[in-house]
Design a protein around this nucleic acid. Structure first.
Lengths: 152, 152
DNA sequence: GTCCATGCAAATGATTTGCAGTATC
DNA sequence: GATACTGCAAATCATTTGCATGGAC
């Protein structure tokens, strides 16, 4: 399975950055579980299983780079942590058709694919002259499970 | 002009909270400039002009309450500060038809009114069983001014 | 008079930074 | 071998909290 590792290595080379094992391990942790939304600390713990000597600062420094490169996406769930998830490997310059649904009961985070927002972005350009290049959309509410439990 | 002050006082009474001058001053700062997105520190500075003895902690404690009551809205622009703006005084239970456009060049924040998202929310309920009760939508890009400047 | 609220200072906790040693190219 | 990277510890900085005093009801 192509996890994008090679592409990542190449990108590092292009940028004059070195491919350290820690750096690759961090990437792999994110790439291995594309549906999770990792805290820096969670990434740290996960990487530590294979690289016990790694420091938390290294994780922070690298997720920052990863995020700059657009390889991972930042996500803020307003719980005091910045979270990260691996980006879609084959988005050229396409928008993220990817929103987050946050359950206010169980705290679960779900994703929803959609492209309705492009319509909205067109509308924004037309009426405001504002050119949208990215967006972040969060929906708060109750997931299927919790909504069902609530109804009784 | 009805700023909602009276309604706020009444709400405080109902909740068994006291109407201290600091508390009202904080509310007024937010209500006076509905289009601004205030940092806690900014609110503090503003209130300080009339109440020089006020403490920053008091501001934090009160905006937290205000936010719980739904009187002001939290807003995270990912710049390391939580921001606040006064909510729409006559939303009963209506959703916010109010999105934020953030210019990546000048840092300006604009608002855009729209109800297209309700369609999306219906779709989310139908396909995922997730019941949306609120949302936060941010668009990043270039404002009219900066887009124009960029083009040359 | 009771109880909530305030102001101050100290605590917290996620993230950043300085620096000396280490590994990659 | 030069330069970027790491790990550690210390620093930052927004926000929270403890506590004694003060004010609203």
């Amino acid at each position: 399975m192509d996890t994008g590792l090679e592409r990542y290595k190449q990108l590092l080379r292009e940028k004059g950055m070195k491919t350290t094992p820690q750096r690759l391990a961090i990437f792999e942790v994110l790439a291995d579980e594309p549906d999770r939304h990792f805290t820096a600390e969670e990434i740290y713990d996960k990487v530590k299983q294979r690289w016990p000597e790694i420091g938390l600062a290294t994780v922070y420094r690298n997720i920052q780079k990863l995020s700059e490169f657009g390889i991972i996406d930042k996500l803020n769930l307003d719980d005091g942590f910045v979270r990260y998830e691996i980006g879609d490997p084959d988005r050229d310059k396409a928008k993220h058709h990817h929103h987050h649904l946050i359950c206010q009961k169980c705290g679960g985070v779900f994703t929803f694919e959609d492209d309705l927002l492009e319509l909205l972005e067109d509308r924004i350009r037309e009426t405001m002259g504002f050119i949208v290049s990215d967006h972040e959309v969060k929906f708060y509410g109750y997931c299927r499970e919790c909504a069902r439990a609530q109804k009784r």
